[in-house]
Design a binder for these strands. Structure first.
Lengths: 226, 226
DNA sequence: TGCATCATTCGATCATAGTCGAAGCATGCA
DNA sequence: TGCATGCTTCGACTATGATCGAATGATGCA
């Protein structure tokens, strides 16, 4: 025993309700101040500050000072996908949740997962990409085919520009609500950007929900049918 | 707040050192008895029993009674992949390092693993080899195809010379940072030698880091795209 | 039946860590 | 300079939960 990385160190950081709520809030991808996170966590400011110090020390979040504000954010997409993985388990083995409200339904349909799209729409897109051989799945590796490059170019995304970055182009991220994979990585982030750019959807305030417009929903349906 | 599943409930289960060690032991896939898990967790039998009751109640493990033994196992692959995700974060945000510095990023990108390449670049290479059918994966065994021999010859490696050695030509090695396989064995070592020979990269002093030059990085990218 | 083994439950102890009020620092603004 | 705001630190309190010894159940074996 005692080999490998220290699981409990990281897990215990997420294991406190206040911290878990803060991290959930940061899953929106936006940086938040200590006061905002205190509200999200349902604790007082001193308590929140203590929690945030631990999360920072533990490497899960980063902080950037701007004037008298301190903005906290998740330290990377790896942390985000870990939180999604935990959410997946929590949702599947979780106690029977009371009737899911409208907010939950909206979250299930489409939400932000750090910097890319998650939810039913995201899984539908991923299925389409796989079915049309636009991406190739090799175990947990995801690669874009030539055909896929063209498809994304049609959608308005310059893939070659993304490839130069250090960040992996494609990654599969397990969707906790649908329990299947959706597209993450640089390409996933670019796709979400493009959806906002086309005004097919907008961010709901103070929430991870991505609200599609009627037109956007129709356009998106058409996108993943062709 | 209070959106989505209850993260902290699951995370706090993993957040205790004794339970985390038990879960790690169960990652082998085999079912273990309560006494064995007490040993793995480094706690007494009553304590272990209490922990296992919580893990079972929480849905992370299942128990099957066989005679006077009770065998515990992970309740599914979803739990396993969650634990992998947490391990990944735990490994990446080092136990001490507060913020991963440039050195850590470099280690993740490319490092020496005994005598062959490891890290993101190595995994990318391995994925390419598999995707292009240059190697064949048979469980743990890795064999070079005819097409693969030609590919390595083009890269400047005389495969037939390596085959005469006692050492196995190809082996798969699990990458700790990326947690996927990369190429080891005589061929893996030869590939790293060749990378140094071509001056695509150099060893960083007193470190495992393999620092790619800008040109080397571009050449390497081209290598695993064709 | 009696005994040994494997495991859980109970009861008591103890340490860790979450919590907040009050005070202290730093920044921005007038 | 003075004051308000945003955040952290300190100190004290409290509760949760991890731990184990002893007792109790359950199963297998002779």
């Amino acid at each position: 025993m005692k080999e490998g990385p220290d699981l409990s160190r990281i897990a215990s950081l997420v294991g406190d309700p206040a911290r878990a709520n803060m991290l959930s809030a940061l899953m929106s991808g936006t940086a938040l101040t200590a006061s905002e996170l205190a509200l999200e966590g349902g604790v007082g400011l001193p308590t929140a500050s203590s929690h945030l110090a631990k999360l920072t020390e533990g490497g899960l979040v980063t902080v950037t000072t701007q004037g008298r504000h301190r903005y906290y954010a998740l330290s990377g997409s790896e942390v985000a996908s870990m939180l999604e993985a935990i959410s997946g388990v929590a949702a599947s083995v979780g106690p029977k949740r009371v009737r899911p409200g409208p907010r939950d339904n909206a979250m299930r349909e489409a939400r932000v997962c750090y910097d890319h799209l998650a939810g039913e729409k995201a899984v539908a897109l991923f299925d389409h990409l796989g079915g049309q051989k636009l991406i190739r799945l090799n175990g947990d590796a995801v690669t874009l085919t030539r055909k896929g490059q063209d498809w994304f170019a049609d959608f308005g995304i310059d893939v070659s520009a993304l490839e130069t970055k250090r960040r992996p182009l494609c990654r599969a991220c397990l969707d906790w609500s649908v329990r299947r994979s959706h597209l993450a990585g640089a390409l996933g982030a670019a796709a979400l950007d493009r959806i906002f750019e086309l005004k097919w959807a907008r961010r709901e305030k103070d929430s991870r929900v991505v609200a599609f417009t009627p037109r956007g929903r129709a356009e998106f349906e058409r996108l993943i049918r062709t």
